[in-house]
Nucleic acid binder design. Sequence first.
DNA 1: CTACATCCTCTAGCGACTAGAGGTGCAAGG
DNA 2: CCTTGCACCTCTAGTCGCTAGAGGATGTAG
Lengths: 140, 140
Amino acid sequence: MKKITIGEASRQSGVKVPTIRYYEGIGLLSAPSRSEGNQRSYEPADISRLVFIRHARELGFEVDAIRTLLVLQDDPNQSCASADAIAKARLIDVEQRIRSLMALKVELEAMVAGCGHGRVDQCRVIEVLADHGQCAHNHH
Amino acid sequence: MKKITIGEASRQSGVKVPTIRYYEGIGLLSAPSRSEGNQRSYEPADISRLVFIRHARELGFEVDAIRTLLVLQDDPNQSCASADAIAKARLIDVEQRIRSLMALKVELEAMVAGCGHGRVDQCRVIEVLADHGQCAHNHH
DNA sequence: CTACATCCTCTAGCGACTAGAGGTGCAAGG
DNA sequence: CCTTGCACCTCTAGTCGCTAGAGGATGTAG
């Protein structure tokens, strides 16, 4: 079994070196064995775990949610109700964010379109920001 | 001219009290005059500025960008090219985020739909996360 | 005059990293 | 064998945009 250095693990998983050490620190990744010179030595399973974590992070899952998902992954006999719940919650969140961003896009487009590249006092960018009543973006 | 307390300013602007003090600390908002008892006393113009800041933050502008926008707002004779550039950059960013989130939504929907509420080893949520090759979500 | 809300300053914490200092390990070339 | 130079180690502190809490002063209503 060839030893995988942290740099190699980083290249293979797409997770940056300091981030791997950080994940170890917060207990997302168990501490690997060390070489004689105290250097971390990973195994293929660790790479899979890192890929799993990276992918979950890219999907916007929080570290705490990933912790739960990892526990589920380690025990395949469990019910996947928790995993399902986490994914569903995340889906609702994503849908909400898409809605906000779409509304926001409309506003930004109006701002940019309304800017005649003249002076600031004719610029809709500033105007829209200053006058909240003009836009559809309401709160509480 | 009646004095506006920080609490009143907060209510009128929709910016929380500690956040107002924070904005003063980082120089987004100039320090207001104080009452005899050392309490901040705001004027209507400060409320407008706070509303401007809040709205810009809601649109996702970073504090540094807002700083620039505020400078522009204070000098209406300037060209609005900078404001336009900031808004355009923000628009591109928002469009990019919408695209990622849409891709993500598709993946999450597949995960949730594929989960038969059985055991973890049949669960697509875990599976999709573990096997990056299965999804359309590619990076660098 | 007393109760109580609101204000003050200050420091520390959040999430999820990222950057840098200061030192050690290791593989390859001369 | 020795040096070069990169990759590794630990540790602390910084990032962003706040938020929370301690511990104390002020302002207002009854």
